[in-house]
């Protein structure tokens, strides 16, 4: 990802200002504050860079391919990709209509619904997992019904992992798409209507393409959130290798036993996320 450093050189103070504050001391002040900003930027960049460096310096590059080929790593990686993509897909399917309703409909309790939607963003994921367990667990009210009516059990299954990831990821999609719907010029929809387009055609051929950048950004954020999800997943879906053990869970487990495996898994996750994010960014999110 290309870092574009903010322009740090400060313009000369305008003459009248220099005159007001007394030229020399003002310039010195300007210089000092610029130096302070530079220092803060340096600390922030180092703060992000050092952990990455720590990871990369300890990576057993020679054994990376053998680690990658090992069945536990491959199954965790595979599970991570499948679950996070499924969670993103579900988020899009249900989140876009929800974003539409929040942006375009006025109904009593709309702000309540919006607060509810964003709750998973502020609640600790473990708490979310507990809540999911109490609702969709074998003895939860929704879970029992699902079990009796359809024979479906969610906790400690891959479907449960997907559900937990969707729970924490969907809010990112909803708020991003809602913002896109709010900021788009709705008169384009008027133009489509006068040309004979029914609401669904207008949505598909005008609204959706116009909010595409928001949709992609929201999907990318949701996907990134799902990929890194740990707390809700381990609480609700457990840590079963091959079924619910995604990379973050495998990393945590490996920390206890084999540090090399943990590092390898981390690097793999980092590489995958970074690649997809860069691809998406280039294509859809020049401003993100």
């Amino acid at each position: 990802m290309a870092l574009s450093p903010p322009s740090l050189h400060s313009p000369q103070p305008p003459p009248e200002e220099a005159a007001r504050t007394g030229g020399g001391s003002s310039a010195a002040l300007e210089k000092a504050s610029t130096a302070m900003v530079k220092l803060a930027v340096g600390v922030a960049v180092a703060f992000f860079l050092l952990p990455l460096l720590g990871l990369l310096l300890r990576t057993p590059w020679g054994e990376l391919s053998t680690e990658l080929a090992s069945p536990p790593v491959r199954s965790a990686l595979w599970l991570s990709l499948v679950c996070s993509l499924a969670a993103t897909g579900i988020s899009v399917v249900f989140g876009v209509p929800l974003a539409w309703a929040l942006a375009r409909w006025t109904f009593p309790g709309r702000s309540l619904v919006r607060a509810l939607t964003t709750l998973p963003m502020i609640v600790p994921p473990v708490v979310g997992g507990v809540a999911l367990l109490l609702a969709f667990g074998r003895r939860g009210f929704a879970g029992r019904w699902l079990d009796q009516a359809f024979g479906v059990t969610l906790p400690f299954t891959m479907a449960g992992a997907i559900l937990a990831e969707t729970f924490v990821a969907m809010p990112f999609l909803v708020i991003t798409v809602e913002a896109g719907l709010r900021s788009m010029n709705r008169r384009f929809e008027d133009a489509a209507a006068t040309l004979g387009a029914r609401p669904w055609v207008t949505f598909r051929r005008v609204t959706l393409p116009l909010i595409a950048p928001s949709l992609w950004a929201g999907a990318a954020l949701a996907w990134a959130r799902a990929l890194g999800e740990f707390g809700a997943t381990i609480t609700f879906a457990g840590n079963l290798p091959g079924r619910t053990q995604t990379i973050p869970l495998a990393v945590y487990l490996a920390l206890e036993t084999r540090l090399e495996a943990a590092i390898t898994l981390s690097v793999v996750l980092l590489a995958v996320s970074l690649t997809i994010l860069v691809l998406l960014r280039e294509r859809f999110m020049p401003n993100l």
């Binding site: 010029n185 008169r187 384009f188 008027d190 133009a191 489509a192 209507a193 006068t194 040309l195 004979g196 387009a197 029914r198 005008v206 393409p209 116009l210 595409a212």
Partner: peptide
């Protein structure tokens, strides 16, 4: 009648050509 059901052509002040 909904806008789509009227035989109307509308040229908007800022044209509103679909940018995509």
């Amino acid at each position: 009648r909904a806008p789509a059901e009227r035989s109307t052509g509308f040229v908007f002040q800022d044209y509103l050509l679909f940018p995509h």
